[in-house]
């Protein structure tokens, strides 16, 4: 008897499970409707980018005669013109130097600081953490005037080093937020075992903590890379030399210069847009982790 009842219950559960596995969707119409909306929005997102890329492969004649059509032949003429007329490789290298250097500095100094903030109890710890986190809410460009004055006195105006320093300062708050959150999860017993083995405090950090930081390092690097690579404001106010322009600054300069030559303009915009996009698509997982690091903690 009892057994029968159990079986019945079980069947009910099974039924219920099956039913609920269709989840938050209650009907087929809802299902279709959801997809239609999401697909329309996807088109809204993708089409302008698609249009930019395809237009860059057309001749100026085609661009105006047939703006919606696909390029008839794979025409790289605009790119050849762009790379001939402007030192685009140079701009790309400048952006690369600045981004990579700044990210290395951010990784080193913010992992060190996070270690102190998350593993030691000391007077002022809480205040310092808040002091660093405040930087997440402050747009650093509000200090532009004094930043210019500082670099002028340091003779670093028109020097990529100025950008590297500013981006390092800009990335430290997020770096500390992400690293501290990660380090708090590492059990204290590991540090203590290092101490028992006679490691110095820095030795513990280098030999025990750093090897565990892999995923956090990727998140910090990717999260900072996109805003640094894309920044236009600081190159605009700190760099005034053709040879030192980064990609966004060069894009703006060349956009003004070739305003009427649509082919070159679209090749220019595509060249600026594609590298960060490809990078983002391959590394989006880490970027999203960095972005929501603060939100999860509340």
């Amino acid at each position: 008897m009892n057994r029968n009842k159990d079986l019945k219950n079980y069947k009910h559960d099974l039924n219920y499970l099956n039913h609920s596995s269709s989840g938050r969707l209650r009907s087929n119409t809802g299902y279709v409707f959801t997809y239609i909306i999401l697909i329309i929005q996807s088109l809204v997102i993708i089409y302008p980018i698609f249009l930019t890329i395809t237009t860059s492969l057309k001749t100026n004649r085609q661009i105006f005669k047939n703006p919606f059509g696909m390029p008839t032949d794979f025409n790289l003429g605009n790119y050849i013109k762009l790379f001939e007329k402007a030192n685009y490789v140079k701009y790309f290298l400048n952006s690369l130097i600045v981004s990579v250097s700044a990210i290395l500095i951010i990784l080193i100094v913010s992992s060190l600081a996070s270690y102190a903030l998350s593993k030691y109890k000391f007077f002022g710890n809480k205040f310092l953490s808040l002091y660093f986190l405040a930087g997440l809410m402050i747009p650093i460009r509000l200090g532009t005037i004094n930043i210019m004055q500082i670099f002028q006195t340091m003779h670093l105006y028109n020097n990529l080093l100025s950008l590297i320093i500013i981006y390092s300062a800009m990335g430290i708050p997020a770096g500390i937020l992400i690293f501290s959150g990660f380090m708090k999860e590492i059990p204290d017993e590991l540090n203590d075992s290092g101490r028992v083995d006679g490691c110095s405090e820095f030795g513990i950090f280098r030999k025990i903590i750093v090897p565990l930081l892999g995923p956090a390092i990727v998140v910090v690097a990717v999260y900072n890379l996109i805003p640094i690579w894309n920044d236009f404001w600081f190159p605009m106010v700190l760099i005034n030399n053709e040879n030192l322009m980064t990609v966004p600054l060069a894009t703006a300069k060349l956009f003004g210069q070739y305003e009427t030559d649509y082919g070159i303009i679209f090749a220019l915009l595509t060249s600026a847009a594609v590298p960060p996009m490809v990078l983002f698509i391959t590394l989006s997982k880490y970027f999203v982790k960095g972005l929501t690091a603060g939100a999860v903690k509340g």
Partner: peptide, 27 residues
């Protein structure tokens, strides 16, 4: 006083303070 804590904090503290916080107030 544990000096090593200061050494861990100092690089980030200096860069962040000198190039982000102070410029804000000096501006």
């Amino acid at each position: 006083f544990r000096w090593y804590i200061l050494w861990f904090l100092l690089p980030a503290l200096i860069i962040y303070t000198v190039f982000m916080i102070l410029p804000l107030f000096n501006s």
